[in-house]
Amino acid sequence: MSAEQKKTIIVVDDLPENISILIAALTPEYTVLGATSQAQLMTLLDKDIAPDLILLDIVMPDCDGYQVCCQLKSMDKTADVPIIFVTSKKETKDEKKGFEVGAVDYITKPIEPVVVKSRVKTHIDLYRNTLALKEHIHQQEVRERELLAIKEELAELASSDPLTGLKNRRCFFEGAEKEFLRFKRLSASFTVLMIDLDNFKSINDTYGHAAGDLVLKAFAELTQGLFRDYDIVARFGGEEFVILLPETNCDSAFRVAQRLRSQTAKHKITYQDYRIKLTASIGIAEVEKADVDINASIERADNAVYLAKKQGRNQVIVSH
């Protein structure tokens, strides 16, 4: 066994001869370091020595072993390190106090090497196995967090439009169907906005598809800050967008839609040396009791968009 592989024991006793006896008993299986005082012990610990076990005398001139044990248990570095008292104090009350302050075992003097070696091996093996188990649990928790992050990322990718970063059509319908069921159960009104970017085909034809993609992303950015966290803003397909506004009637939805339409018309998109002007036609439909599913509201909002286009574009129409 190489020195690097050896487990380390610190023996704390004010009598050097007792330290020598324990070193002789535990070498060469372990690396054994001696300290004749609390100060020497702390010096060893300050040198980044990580003991696997500490053999601690109770009665020493400069300190009380029980107090030293309490101090070690309060330190992060040694809180879990097993401590065995090796002492001449043989009263049951002394042994009981040793366990109460955190020791794992209690050996009385005179020292019996065979007994010490057996007790030391038992507690070091238990300590090492505990460390290994904690590390295994930690690694498992790390893997679980990584898997959860991957799962969340995949869920986000599955629910998002890759170009604009908005929700995709599938995600919209999942949320909209839940909102529709809530409406049927609680009569909690909601409104659908259908949005079509005006003259989008002309933008693609004039400036190219890269410009078209830039326009779509720019419009998606315009929606940020206009809607609540629980509103569903999604790309429906091509240059069409759809927004679901829970607990919102047509009047409130109209005001929000007008702000979006106005900001879209004011926004100038720069592509290469070109300045592209963009407008949007928006249709609004509030869910009705007669609707059999969410598609009825979407269809009415879509018809309102068609009417907005027909009447000159860049306007908001409410379905009646």
Rank of each mutant, 00 (worst) to 15 (best):
K6G: 06
I9V: 14
D14K: 04
N18R: 12
I21R: 13
A25Y: 03
T27Q: 15
T27E: 14
Y30C: 04
V32T: 09
T36V: 14
T36L: 07
T36N: 15
A39Q: 15
L45M: 07
D46C: 04
K47V: 00
K47D: 13
D48S: 13
I49N: 07
A50E: 15
P51W: 01
L53Q: 03
L55V: 09
L56R: 05
I58Q: 06
M60K: 12
C63T: 13
D64K: 09
S74T: 11
S74A: 15
M75K: 13
M75E: 12
K77G: 07
A79Y: 08
D80H: 12
I84N: 01
V86A: 01
K89F: 13
E91C: 02
E95N: 02
E95D: 07
K96W: 02
K96I: 14
K97I: 10
V101H: 03
K109M: 11
V114H: 11
V115Y: 06
K117L: 13
R119T: 09
H123A: 06
Y127V: 06
Y127M: 09
T130H: 12
L131Q: 15
L131I: 12
A132L: 12
L133M: 14
E135W: 03
H136I: 06
I137A: 08
H138M: 12
Q139H: 12
Q139D: 10
E141T: 09
E141D: 08
E146L: 01
L147K: 00
K151R: 14
E153V: 00
E156C: 11
A158V: 09
S159Q: 13
S160Q: 12
G165Q: 10
G165H: 06
L166Q: 05
N168Y: 02
R170W: 08
F172S: 04
E174W: 00
G175L: 10
E179Y: 01
E179S: 03
R185N: 12
L186F: 10
S187F: 03
A188N: 15
F190Y: 13
F190A: 02
M194L: 07
L197Y: 04
F200T: 02
I203K: 01
I203A: 03
G208F: 03
H209P: 13
A211T: 09
G212P: 11
L214N: 10
K217S: 13
E221C: 06
E221R: 13
T223N: 06
L226S: 07
D231V: 10
I232C: 03
I232E: 04
R235C: 07
R235F: 01
E239G: 08
E240V: 06
L244E: 02
L245R: 00
T248K: 02
F254G: 00
V256Y: 01
R261I: 05
T270H: 14
D273C: 10
I276A: 05
I276P: 14
S281D: 08
S281I: 08
I282M: 05
E286W: 00
E288A: 04
A296P: 01
R300C: 04
A301Q: 03
A301H: 01
N303E: 14
A304E: 08
V305Q: 01
A308K: 02
K310P: 00
K310N: 14
Q311I: 00
N314T: 06
V316N: 02
I317F: 07
I317V: 15
